[in-house]
Design a binder for these strands. Sequence first.
DNA 1: GCTTAGGTTTTG
Length: 763
Amino acid sequence: MPVLVVKDGPGPGTQVPAQLQRIPIPLLSPTSDCTGKTVKGRVVHKGPLVSMGEDNYVLKTVIQEEDSQQNMSPEHSSINIILFGALAKDYSESVSQGDMLLVTGFTVGNSPTAQKDKLHACNLQLAGDDAWMYVWPSTVSPRASVPRKRTSPASTEVTKAVKVVKYTYVPLSDLKPGVVVNVYAVVTFFKQPFRTKGTDYCSTLKITDQSNKKVGCTIFCDKLEEHPKIFKMGDVIRLHRVKTQLFNGAISLLTSHGFSVVTFDGMVGSPVVPRTSSGSFKFGEEDCQVVEALRTWAANQSLVPAEPCVPLSAVQPKTYFDLTCQLLATAPVDSSCTLLKVWDGSKCPHPLLDVFVEPNTLEGSPTLSKDMANLTANVLVYDNHVEVARQFKPGSYLRIYNLHAVPGASRLPSNDSGQSDQTGHLGFHLHGGTSYGRGLRVLPEDSPDILDLKRILETFSESDINDSSMFEVWSTPPESFGTAPDEIATERTCDHTVEQVSLAEVKSRGPPQVFHVQAQLKSYQPQRLYQSLKLFCHKCKTIELPSESPSRTLTLLMSSQLMGKGKAKELIFLKGATLEETCRIASAYSNIVPVTSPQGTMTPLDLSAPFLFRGTKRYYGCKQCSQLKVGESLGEGVEVWDEKSVADALGVQLLQYGLLMKLELQDGTGSLEALLWRDAESFFHVSAEDAAADQEAQDRVQETMDRLCPPGSSTAERPWMDLCLSAYTVEENGQRRACYQICHTDTRGTNPHTHPYAAPSDT
DNA sequence: GCTTAGGTTTTG
């Protein structure tokens, strides 16, 4: 019983070589040059194996090209294939009608049956060592056969001639002990990989398929990334080369040599995207069909008893649940415990436990405002999960499995000082061990659940932007402060001498004037620091918020003028892309300009969206001052494309990034609100443009604010600041009022080693 | 080199 699979391993030999070029069947003629060419189609007819004497066979089969142009008649896209010798025998035994077939090393002849069968006027003939064949099986075979290498000497020659990539998938109910098989199934239980006492990580699964048999599966592998990427129950899994084994009277599956795994989202209708770290796995349209069949079947089976994923808004105390969330910050607690601060944008009806940690041990954004809004969940991760959790970076998206909602105060040492009574507040524990699938993992940003979560989190920040207290900041024109800036001294280290005064005195003296004050930071806005990023126009002085473009359909366009100069890739026009798509494309090209093309002329979008993407940076244009050039000649004589030359070429008045914050200062005599705007970049030692694109720059701003106003700190704990204040008058609706701005002040010295602009040493 | 785990709640 020879089974024909010669190479069933995921080695390079099973890949269709990339240099082969496919010929559409309708274009085949007896004069076609067939060297290095392939023909592909579905097997629509498979004739009997005809013996012509000892070890000599002939077999006729018909394949039909499925993706031929629609106006081609079917007779031109279907062709006879004649197979000779051992190849015919192997084909007969391993290929079925409905399989997808790709052949190479063929010759083209005239089809003697063209008149009769009305198929292609030519046929393909395959014989000898040059003929190769790749087969993708169309359906899950009910046979419990196992692909394996031929061993008889006679077959060795055949193996040179044929390569058949064919996997047979065995229904779980048909598994017999002691064989290596491939299976397709739906995951009904899983544990994220955990360390064993041996050399490997272990994943424990329970799977089922249409045969309704439930089978346990244990995966050992020393590389985490080669473990199945299972995100939730109901995911579809494809296992290659797993070994059946009797354990406690039942069949179970275990990894065997050459094991590989691919998983898929289990939701009916979601795209069939294989999740794998392997670069050489096989995946064809037949796999799509199997995945979809399993999804549809599982959808009617109630395999997953209750939805384990619960948002914070629906968490019940004392229950276990799965949480899908974004990581805000982490802090190590001790060797067997790590704190994760997370949110999912939903508001928990029960008060959430706050866990205070030393700010210098916290990695990630401040969560103060979200803490106050009862949005931040504090998750304590114990024992075996600590190793996993400490790899996570703030901002990433997580799923935490079997999280325990525990009412009552945390017993963390830092919490014992008793600032507030948190009895009954909900804390979350990921206990040690792996019972009930306890564990946690990062989910990719493009997985369906995370796309949903992102939408929720975005909605949340948009509603936050409309916070009325922020309007005051935005409507204040900071550029209108009056007195000569040169007279304003810097902080205490400056040579300028202005008598230091109290905040009460600043208010009583009024503008226009410059003051030296010593004060502490009482509060600041915006708490979400990315909201401090503003765009402003040097020409007309307007300030805007960065915004994003809506979804459209996507077209890549290139400038014909640039193409003529061989520079087409330096400036790409992109039509109808979403923000996310644009960002992806921007990582591959130096300059991306989103456009619309009404009446066929390329026009930059209205300037509420970036007009240019350069790498991670986005550039905006002023709506009032830009005079867009439509369909005009582009960039004559431009040698270097950067944001300025692109803006010039498009007629865009480039907006500059700026940082705008409102700081509430206090000293013993009172409090006063001051803006940080004109000198914000030197204050923070970052450029606003960097802060718009670079997490590290944003972190630096955050660190500075955390030093001035440590999260959870009392007033007494906050440092004093030497500040230069400029007082000026603003006219609004005919009303004049005093405004204050912090100028010529920077935070150098507070933590000099972290500042790239710190004074150079003498060496 | 060829085991490891084999679902079923920490005790913070």
